[in-house]
């Protein structure tokens, strides 16, 4: 137990110093913009469908269960006033980030891990190309920007699927749905969602790079790095999500 705690903090320290190193590399060039844009493009395309497919059902389920609760009080008209903040602030950013971790994070970790076990990372270093600048930073920057972009899309998708299950499926008055939709959404909700995605996306890129570069143990190690990237980022996302929710509640936002 004590050893486990100590290991956890040791790991946390290593990740933080890695983050500092990545930041330093980003400030002092050389920067590989073309590679970054190419990677962002590839990851965006790959993430689009999984992220959409993961978030859309959540709006549907919130509507589905929400209708049954609000009906008890004869207040099903105000369902949308609960749906919108939940999607904006909570589910869309969290799920979009989890799915970016699952898709982009694990593929970045696997790619870097493969390079590591094949000796290509060492080859880069021998050719005086810094592996952090060349393979980690592009992935980090790409994740940083695609996650908020994806979040905008999934927020819309979540609302549409929520609408579909509330209005045509459950027969809620369409006028009441749209009228109440934005009654509880503030600009803060929007910014909180985007801000979280920015932070989570960066964390995905960072952890993927960190674990990818630490891959050992051949092909099996590559799988382990890809897997751990997802597990670590999900932990981070859920814990951070709770802390942010608490903070916002305390601030009364």
């Amino acid at each position: 137990m004590i050893a486990g705690v100590r290991r956890f903090f040791a790991l946390l320290g290593e990740i933080l110093s890695f983050a500092v190193e990545v930041a330093r590399c980003m400030i002092q060039g050389p920067r590989f913009w073309a590679e970054t844009i190419r990677l962002a493009d590839v990851l965006m395309r790959r993430c689009l469908i999984p992220v959409g497919l993961a978030v859309a059902p959540v709006g549907a389920v919130i509507s589905l269960q929400g209708v049954s609760v609000f009906r008890m009080f004869g207040a099903d008209g105000i369902l949308s006033s609960m749906l919108a903040p939940a999607i904006f602030r909570q589910y869309s950013p969290a799920l979009a980030s989890v799915m970016v971790a699952a898709q982009a994070g694990s593929s970045i970790a696997a790619r870097i891990g493969t390079m590591k076990v094949r000796g290509q990372i060492d080859a880069l270093a021998v050719m005086s190309v810094d592996p952090i600048r060349y393979v980690v930073v592009p992935g980090f920057v790409a994740c940083l920007f695609i996650t908020p972009l994806l979040n905008i899309l999934t927020t819309a998708l979540g609302l549409v699927s929520g609408w579909f299950f509330a209005v045509p499926v459950s027969g809620i008055n369409p006028g009441a749905f749209t009228a109440n939709l934005y009654s509880q959404v503030t600009l803060v909700d929007l910014w909180v969602g985007i801000g979280k995605c920015f932070f989570f996306g960066g964390a995905v890129g960072l952890i993927a790079g960190f674990l990818g570069l630490r891959t050992t143990g051949g092909a099996a190690g590559v799988g382990k790095s890809a897997n751990n990237t997802v597990v670590y980022t999900i932990i981070l996302i859920l814990v951070a999500d709770y802390l942010v929710s608490m903070l916002l509640l305390e601030l009364g936002l």
């Binding site: 497919l53 799915m99 799988g223 890809a226």
Partner: peptide, 26 residues
């Protein structure tokens, strides 16, 4: 496929199972 194949299989397993579970849940 080599080591790369392990990474690809892992990645696809994670993504597909997550998406399918969420859709199945709905």
């Amino acid at each position: 496929d080599g080591a790369e194949g392990v990474g690809i299989a892992t990645n696809r397993a994670i993504v597909h199972s997550a998406v399918l579970c969420i859709v199945l849940n709905m």
